[in-house]
């Protein structure tokens, strides 16, 4: 039986991803509906979806290069078609790698690969890195960031070994800046964009943590908003308002199940869909 994605956000389940369930749960916290799309289902069912999310994990075991096999999956032809038509698409971590390998982000020339998410190299640190970092919101005009205020400092976890945005073509970076395609930049807890570790955790060019296509409907982000959707997920010793809120919530499940710093990415989508009359 074909599944119905009408009014739903489709979370694409490639073999090897491991964040699809919590990503769907996180989407539901803002009142949106979400469903999982298995990679080998008929892509045509996605026509009815209101948005698409590519979750984190290790699609196709990260064979060859993270995200590159999934980028060639036939479902991505459908995602390309829908994204080009303006449907909101978010890639989180491995999903971001898929979007970059598909040539949707930055998408200056649609479907041509202009960026890479290269192995983390920071001074002489390298390899997999899992921790809470800070990012600054640079662009509120995307489908996924409209509910934030410009310059908002967002604590959020990263967990990746290949998250360093790079391009060898300076024109690409220049165009991205001019077009407002840099969505999030790594920063310190006060919002200062500092190129050195630990503010920049992976050596990403210009501290880029998330980027989008020119139209802003497709966003590729390395940090995990679904791991910062509930207040209980926030570490108690975070040196900011979120840390204080988390400590105050101790003993109160309702407070701790309340909003975390990353929920607004999904709230932004709801807002956008309502504005656009999709919902």
């Amino acid at each position: 039986m074909k599944r119905n994605f009408s009014r739903k956000v489709a979370v694409i389940q490639f073999p090897g991803v491991n964040c699809e369930y919590e990503t769907a749960r996180a989407i539901r916290t803002v009142g949106l509906e979400a469903g999982l799309f298995r990679w080998n289902e008929d892509p045509a069912v996605l026509d009815d979806a209101v948005a698409i999310v590519l979750p984190g994990g290790f699609s196709y075991q990260d064979r060859i290069r993270a995200g590159v096999v999934a980028a060639k999956d036939r479902v991505m032809d459908k995602v390309s078609e829908l994204a080009a038509a303006g449907m909101p698409v978010l890639g989180i971590c491995n999903g971001a790698q898929v979007l970059v390998e598909s040539g949707f982000v930055p998408g200056l020339q649609w479907e041509s690969v202009e960026l890479a998410l290269a192995p983390n190299i920071m001074e002489d640190r390298s390899g997999y890195y899992c921790r809470w970092v800070y990012s600054r919101l640079e662009e509120t005009g995307t489908a996924w960031t409209g509910s934030f205020s410009e310059g908002a400092v967002i604590p959020i976890p990263i967990a990746h070994a290949e998250g360093r945005f790079v391009t060898e073509n300076e024109k690409v970076l220049k165009a991205m800046k001019e077009n407002g395609q840099i969505v999030l930049r790594y920063c310190d807890s006060t919002g200062v964009v500092d190129g050195s570790f630990p503010a920049n955790p992976n050596g990403s060019m210009d501290n880029i943590a998330a980027a989008c296509n020119r139209e802003g409907n497709v966003v590729a982000m390395m940090p995990h908003p679904e791991r910062a959707t509930w207040l209980r997920q926030v570490p108690e010793n975070l040196p900011d308002e979120w840390g204080r809120r988390r400590r105050k919530g101790a003993g109160n499940i309702d407070l701790l199940e309340g909003e975390g710093p990353g929920r607004k990415f999904f709230a932004s989508l709801l807002e956008r869909l309502k504005q656009g009359g999709v919902l």
Binding site: C19, R25, A26, A159, H224, T229, R232
Partner: peptide
Amino acid sequence: MYDSEVQGRAVLRPGEADAGVIAP
């Protein structure tokens, strides 16, 4: 280092306390 956040159920991570805690 490993992924102590996956599944989004973390309440306390390794190093934050004597034991890790999840809300399953």
